[in-house]
């Protein structure tokens, strides 16, 4: 237990420190990278809870995909950092006040009175060969089937809506269609080969009637 507790405190401190750096860094790219660090260390915390499936999925989905796209967008932006930072000190008291209120609320809800060891005793550690993924799948597709399906449909609607909102038809823009380009094959429709002799004898009547010749004479 001693070493596990030590690991917990190490990763908890890294998470808190990284989360603090996210909001205090001047450079947004650094902020995003600290957010990635916060995700990775909270994945480590989930591993300590024996939720290895969730921990790995957190790294796979949030770190591996979502934050990459986030970084992609942030790197493309040309942000004027000075104007962004101007209000920081002025709004700091309000920020601290809201943070304090939220901290108290969170403490009241998940504090020791509701989630202490008396209310929620520590569960038995699972056997070494217990499969987290199998357990989770069994619960999700039996007990929570409807919530999972409804959440999936809502996500699908959100995807379709997001794509529809960003899809702008701009008839003046010229673009190529790669799927039509790769379908091109050599053949009669693409190149027409014309058979003709290398030299064509010019009839005498035509050559004498040439305009250039007439002017000279």
């Amino acid at each position: 237990m001693g070493f596990e507790k030590f690991l917990f405190y190490v990763f908890a401190l890294i998470t808190l420190w990284a989360a603090g750096m996210v909001i205090t860094r001047k450079n947004p790219v650094h902020s995003v990278l600290f957010l990635v660090l916060a995700f990775v260390s909270s994945a480590a915390l989930w591993l300590l809870l024996e939720a290895e499936f969730l921990g790995i999925v957190l790294v796979l989905v949030y770190v591996g995909a979502v934050m990459v796209l986030f970084l992609f967008v942030i790197m493309m932006l040309d942000i004027d950092i000075a104007t962004l930072r101007a209000g920081f000190i002025r709004y700091l008291p309000i920020g601290i006040l809201i943070t304090a209120v939220m901290a108290v609320e969170i403490f009241l809800i998940v504090g020791p009175s509701n989630f202490g060891l008396e209310a929620f005793p520590a569960p038995e550690p699972a056997a070494a060969d217990a499969s987290n993924a199998a357990d989770l799948g069994r619960v999700l597709y039996t007990l929570y089937l409807y919530p999972v399906e409804i959440a999936a449909v809502i996500l699908l609607v959100a995807i379709v809506a997001a794509i529809r909102l960003t899809l702008r038809r701009r008839p003046e823009t010229k673009f190529v269609d790669p799927s039509r380009q790769v379908r091109v094959k050599k053949g009669p429709r693409r190149i027409r080969l014309v058979k003709m002799a290398a030299e064509v004898a010019v009839p005498a009547a035509v050559s004498s009637a040439q305009p250039g010749v007439e002017e000279n004479s």
């Binding site: 990278l33 990635v36 290895e52 499936f53 790995i56 999925v57 790294v59 796979l60 770190v63 591996g64 995909a65 990459v68 970084l71 060969d129 499969s131 987290n132 993924a133």
Partner: peptide, 17 residues
């Protein structure tokens, strides 16, 4: 580990950073 394939997928996606 049980989730070996997932671990490989997760770590190789971190490499892009």
């Amino acid at each position: 580990i049980n989730a070996g394939l997932l671990y490989i997928l997760a770590l190789s996606s971190v490499g892009v950073y």
